[in-house]
């Protein structure tokens, strides 16, 4: 019961309170760039969730079995980025072989994900927050992906409607998106203090 409580709090924390996109500015590039349509945004979100869960768990295990407390700690960033790149490749190959339809729908986002800062960021935060338990690390990783999907889908929904709005010339495109994102972070600040 106690474990469940901790995990639930960790999950809510990472999805809304410490949302990586809106409070830590991670994964901003796809957030501003790709999120023009909800279905695309959702596909991207799913791909990220999948990879981040895998990468977060793997890097946590590697960090705790090989790196923490040994002189190898200096290799942490190298290790993390290689694990992420490897995980992305694996997922891509696996999907192409076994789920071609799924690969068609979000496979195009996969190469982009290697350089998505939300993934490396989450792996680094797992180390920074000194997460001691595997189940917590898994929940946080999956939660980070879901938080990303949530943020990117909200943004895509707003942008779909913004196409109908009369935005002043120079504000069109990136500027108005950034300001909208700013207002969204204000809304998400309401969740702070929940846990």
């Amino acid at each position: 019961m106690d474990t469940l409580h901790t995990l639930l709090l960790a999950f809510i924390g990472i999805v809304v309170v410490n949302n990586l996109v809106l409070t830590k500015f991670l994964g901003i590039c796809p957030y501003l760039g790709v999120s023009g349509r909800i279905d695309m945004a959702f596909g991207m979100g799913c791909a990220v969730t999948f990879v981040v869960t895998l990468a977060g768990t793997l890097t946590w295990i590697i960090d705790h079995t090989f790196l923490i407390g040994t002189p190898l700690e200096v290799m942490r960033y190298l290790c993390f980025i290689l694990v992420i790149a490897g995980a992305v490749q694996l997922v891509e190959m696996y999907l192409r072989k076994f789920f071609p339809s799924l690969y068609e729908s979000f496979g195009i986002f996969l190469p982009l994900i290697t350089t998505n800062c939300a993934i490396l960021g989450l792996c680094l935060f797992l180390n920074l927050w000194e997460i001691k338990r595997l189940d917590e690390a898994v929940v946080l990783s999956a939660g980070a992906g879901i938080g990303f999907t949530l943020a990117i889908c909200i943004m895509a929904g707003i942008r779909e409607n913004m196409e109908l709005a009369d935005v002043p010339g120079p504000m069109r495109g990136a500027p108005i998106t950034l300001i909208t994102a700013g207002l969204l972070t204000l809304a998400f600040m309401g969740f702070a203090g929940m846990i």
Partner: peptide, 22 residues
Amino acid sequence: GMPVGAFVTLGLILALVSVITN
């Protein structure tokens, strides 16, 4: 100092840049 400040300031700067380039 909060995230909102970052987004809005950068948004306004980008708008200014596009005015200048236009």
